[in-house]
Design a protein around this nucleic acid. Structure first.
Length: 597
RNA sequence: GGAGCCGUAGUUCAGUUUGGUUAGAACGCCUGACUGUCACUCAGGAGGUCGCGAGUUCGAGUCUCGUCGGUUCCGCCA
């Protein structure tokens, strides 16, 4: 089909183009019909240009009169200076005086108006994503994403990395997240899994001598979703041989700095701050602290100060080996209503209630728990927090990790409620020295915190050697082992994580015995990896960055759906294509699958 | 798996607290007028399974229970 092709995009014509004959192709985004003259706004992903149709040109005027929003047109004419400039648009000084208009396609009335200040709900926008993507704001997110791909590829090319594609259809391993399964037709009753990450492959590539591997890859995890978690997501996955933690940090910092410099024009300060897991948990109540919060709102542990108190809630917690801790909020109007709201919040986190001490400006102190605390303890608490008039302390008690987590969440809640987050900057840091093992209450056993191939700290190797003989009897010893494992955190969100891997068989065996993986199970689950490791595995380590979260941060949002062309809902449904969907009985039969119910 | 919020015109919402006549507004859509608009303006018009299903009631958008969808958080996410 012939049509008059564009000579320019809708975003590029300026005053200097005055007098030129041009052709624009695009979508009708607005029609203003003044009777004798019609103004059309025509849009493509580069911008919007005004096309003016005068009633003296009878034929074109008739066509212009019939146009609806989102019709695709080709408009030809001369660029002329506008009599009244629109300073709000880049092309606002000029217009195209139409000499011809072709309708390339019509459009039905759209389910919502395509406009920058979108009114439609996310649900509707996802169903008609192709309309949503016509908005500059979303399209620009995709363009930004594309630019970052390029920066990443160039960076790793310069750094001598090899980009290797790993399989999408792989072996299922019951460790970690739930797998998405793909049934095999040839081998009925058997399944592939979609990769939760290319973890095992990239380690094998190290054994292969690839030395520096990188891949921007899709990963899949069948777990419940959040604003920053999609069932399929993109990682910048990398692995290196003959490296320690610092080498990995340097490479990852390098790519992040490159991205920030090229996209935001910001020079991030290197090296990034490093904080241990223990410190992050003790001070910020989380392994991904947001360091942008004004006043910091650090957690202070007052267990010792209140140890002798007769306040039952505290003494019960302390008797049960728990802690009492709090955070101080300064210079904010904290009303009864706000405290009630915060109390409800901590109750939703399964706390009985929220303790508070409010130091009023008139010197009085409001707190329902003061009557249970003697003068010494009261002044002790005040000292611990350096509390002054106008301050409010929020206090939780109970099991240690729960209290710290609770206060960490409360910290974020307060920061949000009182607008304490400094949005003008990005705070990146490393959190390292994670525990190698955790204790799982459900299975009453020791489990890997990161994964089974994470190298323990050299200093803790004796603990592992001792503890692995009888894991059940050495839970405390084993969970105190630190791992050579690290996360990158930006603005309170986890950008990525990685570790130095175990390359020595003896250490690997010890870890497997702690995890109670028999030789048979090891062989079944990781036989191919362990097999490869028998033939000279170099010391190696790596990292994986959450690409979608990086893009979201660069776009100034927490919602990674805004950065993904075709995202899914929180129940993992694709509203546009209606996935997942039932399939034909024949397809199931081919796969040897029958459904019950 | 658990908790909160939302679901009313094509769209975004009001109306639900205290059940009661014909369920409103804005934008969009249709018709008409208008030669410098840019959120054009003006006049008129069409448009509703109040998510779905039960129940209470003389009467339900409004109350109760269930269910579905969206969303946020907890659990989960090596």
């Amino acid at each position: 089909m012939k049509f008059t092709k564009r000579t320019n995009t809708c975003g590029e014509l300026r005053l200097s183009d005055t007098g030129k004959s041009v052709v624009l192709n695009g979508w009708v985004s607005q029609v203003r019909d003044l009777g004798g003259v019609i103004f059309l706004n025509i849009r493509d992903r580069f911008g919007i240009t005004q096309v003016t149709v005068n009633s003296e040109y009878k034929e074109i005027y008739k066509i212009a009169n019939s146009l609806g929003l989102e019709y695709v047109i080709s408009a030809s004419g001369k660029v002329q200076q506008r009599t009244s400039v629109n300073p709000n648009m880049p092309t606002g000084e000029i217009e195209v005086l139409a000499e011809n208009i072709e309708v390339l396609n019509t459009s039905e009335v759209t389910p919502f108006v395509v406009e920058e200040d979108i009114k439609a709900s996310e649900e509707l926008r996802f169903k008609y994503r192709y309309l949503d993507l016509r908005r500059k704001k979303i399209a620009e997110n995709l363009v930004l994403r594309s630019k970052v791909y390029n920066i990443v590829h160039k960076y790793f090319e310069r750094e001598n990395f090899v980009e290797v594609e790993t399989p999408i259809l792989m072996k299922s391993t019951p460790e970690g997240a739930r797998d998405y399964l793909v049934p095999s037709r040839v081998h009925k009753g058997k399944f592939y899994a979609l990769p939760q990450s290319p973890q095992t492959y990239k380690q094998i590539l190290m054994v292969s001598g690839i030395d520096k591997y990188v891949q921007i890859c899709k990963c899949f995890r069948d777990e419940d979703l959040r604003a920053d978690r999609q069932p399929e997501f993109t990682q910048i996955d990398l692995e290196m041989s003959f490296v320690d933690e610092r080498d990995v940090f340097n490479v990852v910092e390098g790519v992040i700095c490159d991205i920030w410099k090229n996209i935001k024009g910001v020079e991030l300060k290197q090296p990034f701050r490093i904080m241990s897991y223990d410190e992050a948990l003790a001070i910020y109540g989380t392994d991904k602290p947001d360091l942008r919060i004004k006043g910091e709102l650090k957690i202070i542990n007052i267990t010792e100060t209140v140890r002798k108190s007769e306040f039952k809630i505290f003494s019960d917690a302390i008797t049960a080996k728990g802690i009492v801790a709090g955070i101080k909020l300064s210079g904010q109007e904290v009303t009864r209503k706000i405290i009630d709201g915060l109390t409800n919040y901590v109750k939703s986190l399964k706390f009985g209630g929220l303790g508070y001490i409010k130091y009023n400006s008139d010197g009085t102190v409001s707190s329902p728990m003061l009557k249970f605390l003697n003068e010494d303890i009261q002044s002790g608490i005040k000292n611990e927090f350096s509390a002054e008039a106008g301050d409010v302390l929020f206090i939780l008690s109970g099991e240690k990790k729960k209290v710290l987590n609770g206060l960490g969440n409360l910290r974020l809640k307060l920061a949000e409620q009182f607008n304490l987050v400094d949005e003008t900057k990005d705070e990146l840091l490393w959190v390292n020295d994670f525990p190698l093992f955790g204790y799982d209450d459900d299975s009453k056993s020791v489990v890997a915190e990161h994964h089974a191939f994470t190298m323990p700290h050299e200093a803790d190797l004796t603990k592992l050697a001792d503890g692995c003989k009888d894991p059940a009897a050495n839970i405390e010893l084993l969970t105190s082992i630190r791992a050579n494992c690290y996360d990158m955190v930006c603005n309170g969100s986890e950008f990525g994580s990685g570790s130095i891997r175990i390359h020595r068989g003896d250490i690997q065996s010890q870890v497997f015995s702690v995890l109670k993986l028999s030789k048979v199970e090891q062989e079944e689950k990781f036989g191919f990896l362990l097999g490869a490791f028998k033939y000279g595995a170099p010391p190696h380590g790596g990292f994986a960055l959450g690409f979608d979260r990086i893009i979201a941060t660069l776009c100034g949002t927490k919602d990674i759906r805004e950065t993904i062309a075709f995202p899914k809902t929180t129940s993992a449904v694709g509203l546009m294509d209606n996935s997942p969907s039932p399939v034909d009985d024949k397809q199931l039969k081919d796969l040897g699958i029958s459904l019950n119910g």
